[in-house]
C-alpha cells in the first residue's frame, strides 16, 4: 500500500499541487488584468475607471464574474451545438496548458522539456481553432466574418513570430526555456542585442492575441463583436478569460525570450534579494502595461494594412534577421551556455 502511494499516487498529487500553485495565481492575475485594463485606460482618458464595488473598485472583477456566472447560457437554434460549446472550452484550456513549460523562477517549472519554445509556439498556433470554431458554429454572418479574419491574421503573424523565435534560439543555443534564461544570465538580456526583434515580437504578439490595434476579429464597429457575438454567460466568460490568459502568456513569453525571465535587473545586493518569481511577475506586468497602453493609443488597423504589415514588412525583416544573426553567431562563435 505504501509503495502504491509513493510510486503512483504521490507523483500525481504533487503534479496537481504544482498545477494549482501556478493556475490559481494566474486566474487571479487574469481577473485583475481586466481591472487594470479599465483603470489604466481610464487614467489615460482622464476618467476614474471602476471605483464603486469595493475599495478603489477592487472587487469589480469578482462582481463581473458573478454576473456572468448567474446569467443564462443561450445557444442559438441554428448553431452547431457541440462545436459551439467546445470552442470556448478549447480557447480557455489552451491558454492554461501552455503554462506547463513556463519557468517562473530558477527551476520553478512544471515540465522542464527540451523543446519548450516549440511547445509554446505549437500551443499558441492552436489558439486560432477556438475562434474559427466559434465563428463557424454560431451560424451568424458577423461571427463568421470574425472567424475568417482571425484565421488569416493569426496564421500570417505566426510566420514572422516563428522566425523571431529562431533568432533568439540561435543566440541562446537551446530550445529549453530555462536554458534561454540562463543564457541571458551568462551574457545580457536579449532585448539589448536583438532590440528590433523584440519590438517586432511584441507587435506580433498583439496580432496573435487579437488585441488592439489588430482586433479585427471583434471589431465592434463593423462586426458587432465578431466571433463571440452569439455567446452569453459562462461561454462568453471563457472566451474572455482565455483572451486575457493568452495576453499574460504572451507577456510571459516576451519576458523569457527578451527580458531575462526571472533574473533581477542588476545582480547586486538589494535586487537579488527579491525572489525570481516576483521579478518574473514584475516584468510581465510591464509588458502587459504596454499592451494596455497600445490599446489606449492607436486606432484600429484596416484589414489590408494588417496583412501588408505581416507579409510585406515583418516577414522580410525577420527572415533577414535570421540570416544575419545566424551569420554573426557562427562568425564570432557565440555560445553563451558553453556547449
Amino acid at each position: 500500500m505504501t509503495e502504491f502511494w509513493w510510486v503512483y499516487l504521490w507523483p500525481v498529487l504533487w503534479i496537481v499541487i504544482k498545477i494549482l500553485l501556478l493556475v490559481v495565481p494566474l486566474l487571479i492575475g487574469v481577473a485583475y488584468l481586466t481591472y487594470a485594463e479599465r483603470k489604466v485606460i481610464g487614467a489615460m482618458h482622464l476618467r476614474r475607471g471602476p471605483n464603486v464595488v469595493g475599495p478603489y473598485g477592487l472587487l469589480q472583477p469578482i462582481a463581473d464574474g458573478m454576473k456572468l456566472f448567474f446569467k443564462e447560457t443561450i445557444i442559438p437554434t441554428g448553431a452547431n451545438k457541440v462545436v459551439f460549446l467546445v470552442a470556448p472550452m478549447l480557447t480557455f484550456s489552451l491558454a492554461l496548458i501552455a503554462w506547463a513549460v513556463i519557468p517562473v523562477g530558477n527551476g520553478l517549472v512544471i515540465a522542464n522539456i527540451n523543446v519548450g519554445v516549440l511547445y509554446l509556439f505549437a500551443i499558441s498556433s492552436l489558439g486560432v481553432y477556438g475562434v474559427l470554431m466559434a465563428g463557424w458554429s454560431s451560424n451568424s454572418k458577423y461571427a463568421f466574418l470574425g472567424g475568417l479574419r482571425s484565421a488569416a491574421q493569426m496564421v500570417s503573424y505566426e510566420v514572422s513570430m516563428g522566425f523571431i523565435i529562431i533568432t533568439v534560439l540561435l543566440v541562446a543555443g537551446s530550445l529549453n526555456l530555462s536554458d534561454i534564461v540562463r543564457a541571458q544570465q551568462e551574457t545580457i538580456w536579449f532585448v539589448v542585442p536583438l532590440f528590433p526583434m523584440a519590438v517586432i515580437f511584441f507587435i506580433t504578439t498583439l496580432a496573435e492575441t487579437n488585441r488592439h490595434p489588430f482586433d479585427m476579429p471583434e471589431a465592434e464597429a463593423e462586426l458587432v463583436s465578431g466571433y463571440n457575438v452569439e455567446y452569453s454567460a459562462m461561454t462568453f466568460a471563457l472566451f474572455f478569460l482565455g483572451e486575457y490568459a493568452n495576453m499574460i502568456l504572451m507577456a510571459g513569453m516576451t519576458t523569457i525570450l527578451f527580458l531575462g525571465g526571472w533574473l533581477p535587473i542588476l545582480d547586486v545586493a538589494p535586487f537579488n534579494w527579491i525572489p525570481g518569481p516576483i521579478w518574473f511577475a514584475l516584468k510581465m506586468a510591464f509588458v502587459l502595461f504596454i499592451f494596455l497602453w497600445v490599446r489606449a493609443t492607436f486606432p484600429r488597423y484596416r484589414y489590408d494594412q494588417l496583412m501588408r504589415l505581416g507579409w510585406k514588412v515583418f516577414l522580410p525583416i525577420s527572415l533577414a534577421a535570421v540570416v544575419i544573426v545566424g551569420g554573426i553567431v557562427v562568425a564570432f562563435d557565440i555560445n553563451p551556455l558553453g556547449r
Binding site: 505549437a122 498556433s125 486560432v128 475568417l148 484565421a151 496564421v155
Partner: peptide, 12 residues
C-alpha cells in the same frame, strides 16, 4: 497550426 487551418478555412 498551418495546414489544417487552411483546410478549415476552405471547408468552412
Amino acid at each position: 497550426g498551418a495546414v489544417a487551418v487552411l483546410f478549415m478555412f476552405v471547408v468552412m
